[in-house]
């Protein structure tokens, strides 16, 4: 049985059908990217896997456990990174304490850190390449370093599965590459499975083993080359998808309606010209 099994899953979120008849199976260890436009149900899928949302119908199994019946059992075994907007980044808290959070929150009170816990923190900080920042305040780090610390927090309990909700948002291309290389290394060398929600189609092309293309329904699931075909991309994003080459030579696919403040495309001359900006 795969590490994640979803069969005929239908989910309603705040009265609206967010996912309909979705079926997929992720085998371990692998790097799966969940793609789709805004409102496609990508985050809803992750929240259902971790037991935050109860599906209307369908079967969900994570590590062989049903998250609708035993959510706390699933949560203790899975590493999770929520979307950036849900994290309060101005709290005076040290990097070490952020990572300990990933261990102590899984235990009953009193949540006292042991020497072994502190060793574990050092170990995961080394994995994400930030071992010298343990005593730094989290809010003093760059956006990319913060994301790495949050990945370390998700990793500290040695999960077999990482669920990451847009870990690349608000980071520059260089940081994105370093995060993606780290995730690829976790899959290849530490046998951790990763399911990552992102808007960036090029990530799927370059780093993933599998791609789930969602737009409320699962439009395609499989190897990136099989899923990211022009017809599938048109089904997901509409006719206006364009290919774009970044300064670093990475291929990016951008939907016509895509507007953000972060990505290379939106900052590019082409975009400014199209918006009529000087």
């Amino acid at each position: 049985m795969g590490i994640v099994v979803v069969k005929d899953l239908t989910v309603e979120y705040e009265g609206v059908i967010a996912l309909e008849d979705v079926s997929l199976e992720v085998s371990e260890p692998s790097f799966t990217v969940v793609l789709g436009p805004n409102g496609a149900g990508k985050s809803t899928l992750l929240k259902t896997l971790i037991g935050f949302i109860r599906p209307v119908r369908g079967i969900v199994r994570v590590l062989g456990i049903d998250p609708t019946k035993e959510p706390y059992r699933v949560r203790k075994l899975v590493g999770y990174l929520p979307q950036r907007e849900f994290i309060e980044r101005d709290i005076p808290i040290k990097v070490r304490d952020v990572i300990l959070f990933g261990l102590l929150a899984r235990r009953p009170p009193p949540r006292v850190a042991t020497v072994r816990d502190l060793e574990k923190v050092r170990e995961v900080l080394k994995i994400v390449g930030l071992e010298e920042l343990a005593d730094k305040r989290f809010d003093e780090l760059s956006g990319g370093q913060q994301q790495r610390v949050l990945i370390a927090r998700a990793l500290v309990s040695d999960p077999k599965l990482l669920l990451l909700d847009e870990p690349l948002s608000a980071t520059d291309v260089k940081t994105q590459v370093s995060i993606l290389e780290l995730l690829r290394e976790l899959v290849d060398e530490r046998n951790v499975s990763v399911i990552m929600v992102t808007h960036d189609v090029s990530v799927a092309v370059e780093y993933s083993d599998y791609v789930a293309l969602l737009n409320r329904r699962l439009l395609a699931f499989g190897k990136p080359g099989d899923v990211l075909t022009p017809s599938n991309l048109v089904k997901a994003y509409g006719e206006g998808l364009r290919m774009f080459l970044t300064k670093e030579g990475r291929v990016m696919f951008i939907a016509d309606q895509h507007i953000c403040d972060f990505c290379e495309y939106c900052r590019s001359r082409e975009w400014r010209r199209r918006r009529g900006a000087t």
């Binding site: 971790i50 935050f52 706390y72 949560r75 203790k76 899975v78 999770y80 990174l81 929520p82 849900f86 994290i87 309060e88 709290i91 808290i93 304490d97 952020v98 959070f101 990933g102 102590l104 929150a105 899984r106 009170p109 009193p110 949540r111 949050l150 927090r153 309990s157």
Partner: peptide
């Protein structure tokens, strides 16, 4: 004092804390 860590965690990242089983 007793629940200092729990309160810190929910202030910092409530969804993350829930995802870790709190």
């Amino acid at each position: 004092s007793i629940f200092f860590k729990e309160f810190t965690y929910i202030c910092f990242d409530m969804e993350g804390a829930a995802a870790f089983g709190m």
